[in-house]
């Protein structure tokens, strides 16, 4: 599976690229968003801010939205998950709107949520083979509030929020699988399998 990883020009793409490669993907880091339009599958990594990321994607927004909702396997990680929604309290402007709902600031005194937290999954292919009780690494101040039934895992931090969402081969995770040791690598491999099977 060839995965195009979007480079917003800020932050570390090394970890996500390496994690996907270890899970068996061929990774191409893409800094021109137009190149996402012909891609076999897409990963939106989790660094930066909502507004800055969307500024880069905005010129091709309608085409990119169509490419994703037409079934191109896509995974958003952390911020990458958030931009798959319609809007965010973090910045004005629309998101990719592949999931219905919005992104809101966490209701907790100490933010960002920074560290390893429990993820309670439903029986879902994204979590296949992930040991029960496995924890994942989070570094986020905002969380997604879907307005459709797409949550496949929940986490508590001041409030309960969906830490993973999935609709076919379109997935989002609020944690960083690439920074979450073996359970995270397993989850990336599961995404690749889901992507293969959706072809």
């Amino acid at each position: 599976m060839k995965v195009s990883v979007m480079d917003y020009g800020v932050g570390n793409l090394h970890s996500i690229a390496k994690g996907l490669e270890r899970a068996g993907a061929t990774v191409e880091v893409v800094s021109d968003p137009a190149l996402l339009l012909g891609s076999e599958s897409i990963v939106f990594p989790g660094v930066g801010a909502f507004g800055a990321a969307m500024d880069i994607l905005r010129p091709i927004l309608p085409e990119l939205n169509k490419h994703i909702v037409d079934g191109t396997p896509t995974m958003g990680v952390c911020l990458g998950m958030q931009i798959l929604f319609e809007r965010s309290e973090e910045s004005p402007g629309v998101g990719l709107s592949a999931f219905r709902g919005e992104v809101k600031k966490l209701k907790s005194r100490r933010i960002p949520q920074m560290g390893w937290n429990d993820v309670v999954p439903e029986a879902d292919p994204l979590f296949e083979g992930v040991p029960r009780g496995a924890q994942f690494y989070f570094a986020n101040s905002y969380v997604c509030h879907p307005e459709e039934d797409v949550a496949v895992a929940k986490t508590e931090y001041g409030e309960s929020f969906p830490s993973a969402v999935r609709k076919g081969a379109l997935c989002g995770v609020q944690f960083h699988p690439e920074k979450s040791g073996p359970p995270g690598l397993r989850l990336l491999a599961n995404f690749l399998r889901i992507a293969e099977e959706s072809k």
Binding site: G11, N12, V47, G48, A49, A52, P112, A139, N140, S141
Partner: peptide, 8 residues
């Protein structure tokens, strides 16, 4: 923080 996010 604005460019890379507070988390880093």
């Amino acid at each position: 923080a604005d460019a890379f996010g507070s988390q880093c």
